[in-house]
Write a protein that binds this DNA or RNA. Structure first.
Length: 927
RNA sequence: GGGCCCAUAGCUCAGCGGCAGAGCACCUCCUUUGCAAGGAGGAAGCCCUGGGUUCAAAUCCCAGUGGGUCCA
C-alpha cells in the first residue's frame, strides 16, 4: 500500500522555503514558509483580514476577476468565456454547474475531446445548493459564486498509443500550479509568510488525486487539485472514501479560486456580502429599516470576525457556537442573535437573488422537476426571507438588481418569471393556510395534537412545511407532533423507488464489434431513397426475423426521437421487408422478414412516403421550437420530442400556460419560415468551435458524443441533430398546431402536424365541425352560437320539467287514480303505482307526506322501484318497508327512517309487492 | 421519470352509496345609517368528462382531462 505523502513533496517548496508542519488543533499536514501552530483555517484560527485588508489594494468584484484572468493570460493561458450555470445543457449527470471543471467533464477530462484551449483560464459562475443553510450565517458562504480557475490537460508520454487521447504530453503539473498560486498572492501584495497550503486529498465522481487547500489569513482562497487517479478495485491508493484508485493516462490540473473570497479579503469588510454587492446590501438594510447604534454596530462587527465557526457542516451545534461567540464579544447571546439574525437574512436575500439571476438568466424555468424545481425552491426560500425581515421591495426587483449587475439581457423575462412564481407561491400558501387552520380546529376540538401522518400528508401533497403547521397550530392552541426525522418519514413514503431499469444488452455484441461501421448514405443525400449495398452479416432473431448488416445504407435508424425508416431490400432472387432499423455504435442493423443471404449484393428501397413525412415533421420540429421562442421568449428550450408520421410533439420549457392567441402566432411564425422556402443545411464542425460560436442551445435535442458534431441550420435556427431533413423549408408544405397542453408545471407540449398530415388533421377537425353543424342543422359558422343557445335552453327545460313534476305530484296526491288508501299507525298510507322515474316518485312522496300521510309508491319504469316516505311523528320505519318491498322484486333498498328508496329487477312482481304493502306496513308498525 | 393529493353554487369548502349543503358574495325587503352591521326572504349546480359496479353513484372502481405537491 502506498499513500500520497510523496505526492506533496515539491521542488518548488524547497526553493521557496516552504516546509511541512502539523496543525496543533486539527492535526492536518500543511506547508508554510513561517513556523506556525495551526493550519490557519477556521475553526483552528479566525479571520485575520477583517478591518485589515490582506492585499495592497481593494478590489471590486469585476476588478478582481480581471486581475486573476489577466495574470494567467500573461502566463500563456487562454481566457475562456464562462458556461451556463445549468450544467444539464451539456451533460446529463448533473443539474447545476458546481465548479469550473464541470465545463470539461466528462469528454475533455477523459481525453475523448480536446479542451477549447490548453492551458486555459476562466471565471465560471457556479451554484451550490448544499451551502444554502450556511449562507448569511458564516459571513463567507454564498450559494452563487464565481470559481476562477486555470486548467491544464495532460496525457502521459510513455503510453502505447499517444493518439488515443485528444491531447498529448504534459503542459504543466504540480510545480507550476503551486508556483502560479504563490506568485498571484505576491502580485496582489499578500504577505506570503501568512500563506498555508493544507494537504487535503480530493475525491469525486470516480476520480481522485492529491490536492492543496490554500489558506490566507483565515480564509480558504484556493483549492489546487491534481486529478490523476481513477477508481480501480486493484488500485494502489486507498482514498478517504474507502475506495481504491490507480493512476490514469490523463492527468488534469483543476484549480478553484473563489472570486468572492478574494474580493472580500482585499476589502476587509465584516462579511463577504458587503464586499461583493455592497449597494444591494445597503439597499436591503435601508429598505428593511435596519439601523444600528454605534455600540451595536461594534458588536456585530466583532462577532463577524468569529462567524467562521458558524458552519453547519463543521460545527456540532450552531447555537452553542453562537454562545461561544457571544461570550468572546462580551454580550448576551439573545442580544447578539437579535442584532445579527436580520443581517444574516439580508445577506442571504442578496445571495439568493443573485442565484436566481444566474438561474433564470441562463434560461432555467421554475417547475416541479429538475433544475426548475431547484429554482423554485430558491425563489420560495428567498420570498420567505424577504417577508420575514420586512423588505417591501418586490422580489422581481431584487433579482433584477442582480441580473443587471451580471449583465443579462433578458431582464424583462426574468422579472416576468419571478412575478409569476411569487404569485403561484402566494396561492399555494393561501391554500395551505386554510387547510392547516381547518385541521388545527379539528384537532383542537378533539383535544389531540396534530399527528405526524397529517404533517407528512400536508408536506408531501400540499407543500406545507411542518414549521408553518406549528405556527398556525400554536395560534389555535394545538400541539404538533413533529418527529426529528421528519424528512426521513417523508422519504419512506417514497420508498422502493429504485430507478434501475434494465439495460437492454446489445444482441450479438461480440460479433457486432468486429464489423466495420456502416456508411451512412442518408447523411450524404437525404433526399435519395434508393441505394446498392453488400450484405456483410445476417443474424437470426428470436422472433423468426433476421438482422442484416450492410456495408452502407440509406435507411435511417431510430434515433433523436425520429422513428426508423421502412422499405425493402432486393437481390435477384428475393425481396425482404425492412421493418425496423437500429444503430449499435457505428453498426446499423436492419430487421427484415427473410434472409437475403450473406455476401449478396442488394438494392435497397426506402419507403418514400413514410420517410418524406418523417423528414417534414423533423424539420418542422426545429421550426416550431424556433417559432415558439420568437413568440414566448428566449427561455424556451426543447425538453423532449417525438416525431411521427401523422403528427409530432415537442415539450418546451415555459413558465406560464399558452393562450390561444399565442398558439396562432407560433403557427404563423412557423409557416412564415416554411413560405420563405430557405434551404436546410448540414455541417460537421469541430465540437469546440460549434460550442464557442453557437452556445449550448445547440443541444436542445440531446448531447451527442464525439469530436465533430452534425449541425442542422433552418433559417436562423441551428441545432445539433442527427435526423433526416427536407432540402428546403418549402418542402414541408404547411405546419398546423393541433394542441397545447401543460405536461407538467413549467413544461408545455405542442402537438403539430406537417405536410399532408397537416391537411389530414385539418380535415378531421373540419369533419367534426360539419357533423356538429349537420346535427344542429345550421351553417358551420353558426355552430358555437347555436350550441350555446341549445345548452341554455336545455338547462331551462330541465328546470321547467322539475317544476312540472312537482305540480303533477301534488295533483296526484290530491287524489289520483290507482290509489289505495289504508289506515296504518293512526294515519293514512297512500299506496300507489305510477310508472315514472325516481325524481318523480320522490316529488310525489314529498307531496303525500306534506298532507300528513305515509307514501308507498311503486314504479315499473325500469325494473321495479319504490319510494316510501313517512311524515314526522309517525312510528313507521320507511327503510324497513322498502327493504321488504324490494326483497319481493329481487333487489334491496334502504335509507333514513323517514324517506327510503329501493327496487329490484323483477318488474312483473311489482303489483304483487304493492298488494302486500298494507300487510308490510301493519307488521312494521306493530313492532 | 416516479409517488401522493384535489376537482360539488360566483368564491372557499362540507357531504363519501339513499331528497344537493354551509359560509362569504349576489338580488329583494325591513331595521340601523360608522369600521367584516343585524333580521326576513330569494336566485344561483351537466356534483370535470367517459365507462363500470349497484335496486340506487356527487359518493365505490377504471380510464381520461385539468390543477396542486413531493422526490430523483
Amino acid at each position: 500500500m502506498s499513500d500520497l505523502d510523496e505526492a506533496y513533496q515539491l521542488d518548488y517548496f524547497e526553493e521557496a522555503g516552504f516546509h511541512r508542519q502539523e496543525c496543533a488543533e486539527c492535526g492536518d499536514m500543511f506547508w508554510s514558509r513561517a513556523d506556525r501552530d495551526t493550519c490557519g483555517e477556521p475553526p483552528c484560527a479566525e479571520y485575520g483580514f477583517i478591518d485589515t485588508p490582506g492585499f495592497d489594494e481593494e478590489y471590486a468584484l469585476g476588478e478582481m476577476r480581471e486581475a486573476f484572468l489577466s495574470f494567467f493570460e500573461k502566463r500563456d493561458h487562454e481566457r475562456i468565456d464562462p458556461y451556463p450555470v445549468a450544467a444539464n445543457r451539456w451533460r446529463d449527470d448533473v443539474l447545476l454547474t458546481q465548479a469550473s471543471i464541470y465545463d470539461f467533464q466528462p469528454l475533455v477530462t477523459s481525453g475523448t475531446t480536446p479542451p477549447p484551449a490548453n492551458p486555459l483560464c476562466i471565471s465560471q459562475p457556479c451554484i451550490r445548493m448544499q451551502d444554502i443553510d450556511n449562507v448569511g450565517k458564516t459571513g463567507r458562504h454564498t450559494m452563487a459564486f464565481e470559481m476562477m480557475a486555470h486548467h491544464a490537460f495532460n496525457a502521459k508520454e510513455d503510453i502505447e498509443d499517444p493518439g488515443e487521447y485528444a491531447y498529448e504530453g504534459e503542459v504543466y503539473w504540480k510545480e507550476d500550479t503551486v508556483r502560479y498560486c504563490v506568485e498571484l498572492f505576491e502580485e496582489l501584495g499578500a504577505d506570503v509568510d501568512e500563506l498555508t497550503l493544507i494537504e487535503d486529498p480530493w475525491v469525486g465522481g470516480g476520480n481522485a488525486g492529491p490536492a492543496f487547500e490554500v489558506i490566507y489569513q483565515g480564509a480558504e482562497l484556493a483549492t489546487l487539485v491534481f486529478m490523476s487517479l481513477e477508481q480501480d478495485p486493484d488500485g494502489e491508493y486507498e482514498m478517504k472514501d474507502g475506495n481504491r484508485y490507480s493512476e490514469m493516462d490523463t492527468y488534469v490540473v483543476d484549480t478553484g479560486y473563489g472570486l468572492e473570497r478574494w474580493t472580500w479579503v482585499s476589502q476587509g469588510t465584516p462579511t463577504v456580502y458587503e464586499a461583493v454587492y455592497p449597494e444591494m446590501i445597503a439597499f436591503l438594510k435601508d429598505n428593511a429599516g435596519i439601523e444600528l447604534t454605534d455600540e451595536e454596530a461594534a458588536i456585530v462587527h466583532n462577532a463577524a470576525k468569529l462567524a467562521g465557526r458558524m458552519d453547519i457542516d463543521e460545527a456540532e451545534d450552531i447555537e452553542a457556537e453562537r454562545d461561544t461567540i457571544a461570550e468572546q464579544v462580551g454580550v448576551d447571546v439573545s442580544e447578539l442573535r437579535d442584532l445579527v439574525a436580520p443581517l444574516e437574512e439580508i445577506y442571504a436575500i442578496a445571495d439568493h437573488s443573485r442565484t436566481l439571476a444566474y438561474m433564470l438568466g441562463d434560461g432555467i424555468v421554475p417547475s416541479n422537476v429538475g433544475t426548475g424545481y431547484l429554482a423554485r425552491m430558491v425563489l420560495r426560500r428567498t420570498k420567505r426571507l424577504v417577508d420575514s425581515v420586512g423588505v417591501d421591495a418586490p422580489l422581481d426587483e431584487l433579482v433584477d438588481m442582480q441580473a443587471d449587475r451580471l449583465g443579462y439581457e433578458n431582464r424583462d423575462t426574468i422579472r416576468d418569471i419571478v412575478r409569476t412564481e411569487v404569485e403561484k407561491y402566494r396561492e399555494t400558501l393561501d391554500r395551505g393556510g386554510r387547510r392547516v387552520r381547518q385541521l388545527a380546529d379539528d384537532y383542537a376540538e378533539k383535544g389531540e395534537p396534530i399527528p405526524t401522518a397529517e404533517l407528512v400528508e400536508l408536506y408531501d401533497s400540499h407543500g406545507i412545511q411542518p414549521d408553518m403547521v406549528e405556527e398556525i397550530a400554536a395560534e389555535r392552541g394545538v400541539d404538533v407532533d413533529v418527529p426529528d426525522d421528519f424528512y426521513a418519514v417523508v422519504a419512506d413514503r417514497h420508498g422502493g423507488e429504485t430507478g434501475d431499469h434494465e439495460e437492454s444488452g446489445t444482441p450479438y455484441a461480440d460479433r457486432l464489434a468486429e464489423l466495420p461501421d456502416t456508411d451512412r448514405l442518408y447523411y450524404e443525400d437525404q433526399q435519395r431513397m434508393e441505394f446498392e449495398a453488400v450484405v456483410l452479416e445476417v443474424f437470426d432473431r428470436d422472433d423468426d426475423g433476421f438482422d442484416v448488416v450492410l456495408d452502407q445504407t440509406m435507411f435511417y435508424p431510430e434515433g433523436g426521437g425520429q422513428p426508423p425508416d421502412h422499405g425493402h431490400l432486393s437481390t435477384d432472387d428475393v425481396t425482404v421487408e425492412v421493418e425496423d432499423v437500429q444503430r449499435y455504435d457505428g453498426v446499423i442493423l436492419h430487421t427484415v422478414d427473410d434472409d437475403p443471404g450473406k455476401g449478396e449484393f442488394v438494392r435497397g428501397q426506402v419507403e418514400a412516403t413514410r420517410r418524406k413525412r418523417l423528414m417534414q415533421h423533423h424539420t418542422a420540429t426545429h421550426i416550431v421550437v424556433h417559432a415558439a421562442r420568437q413568440v414566448l421568449g428566449e427561455h424556451i428550450r426543447q425538453a423532449g420530442a417525438q416525431k411521427g408520421v401523422d403528427s409530432s410533439r415537442i415539450d418546451v420549457s415555459h413558465y406560464d400556460s399558452v393562450s390561444r392567441e399565442q398558439v396562432k402566432e407560433i403557427e404563423s411564425a412557423a409557416n412564415d419560415i416554411v413560405q420563405d422556402n430557405v434551404p436546410v443545411t448540414q455541417q460537421w464542425p469541430d465540437r469546440n468551435e460549434a460550442e464557442a460560436k453557437h452556445g449550448f442551445d445547440l443541444y436542445q435535442g440531446g448531447i451527442p458524443a464525439g469530436e465533430q458534431i452534425r449541425l442542422i441550420q433552418v433559417a436562423d435556427d441551428i441545432q445539433a441533430c442527427g435526423g433526416t431533413h427536407v432540402a428546403r423549408t418549402g418542402d414541408i408544405g404547411t405546419i398546423k398546431l393541433l394542441n397545447t397542453e401543460r405536461v407538467q408545471d413549467g413544461v408545455i407540449r405542442l402537438t403539430f402536424a406537417a405536410g399532408d398530415a397537416a391537411i389530414e388533421a385539418t380535415h378531421r377537425t373540419e369533419d367534426a365541425l360539419y357533423e356538429a353543424a349537420d346535427v344542429l342543422d345550421v351553417a358551420p359558422d353558426d355552430v358555437p352560437d347555436t350550441a350555446a343557445r341549445f345548452f341554455d335552453e336545455w338547462k331551462a327545460r330541465g328546470k321547467e320539467i322539475e317544476e312540472l313534476k312537482e305540480q303533477l305530484a301534488q295533483a296526484r296526491a290530491a287524489g289520483g287514480a290507482d290509489t289505495e288508501e289504508v289506515d296504518v299507525a293512526g294515519t293514512t298510507a297512500v299506496v300507489q303505482r305510477i310508472d315514472a322515474d325516481m325524481d318523480e316518485l320522490r316529488a310525489q312522496a314529498n307531496a303525500v307526506v306534506e298532507q300528513g300521510q305515509i307514501a308507498v309508491l311503486g314504479s315499473g319504469a325500469s325494473g321495479a322501484q319504490f319510494v316510501v316516505a313517512v311524515p314526522d311523528g309517525v312510528e313507521v320505519d320507511a327503510g324497513e318497508v322498502v327493504g321488504e318491498l324490494a326483497g319481493r322484486v329481487g333487489g334491496g333498498g334502504g335509507g333514513p327512517a323517514d324517506f327510503a328508496q329501493g327496487g329490484g329487477p323483477d318488474g312483473e312482481k311489482l303489483d304483487d309487492a304493492l298488494d302486500d304493502a298494507e300487510a308490510i306496513l301493519q307488521s312494521v308498525a306493530n313492532v
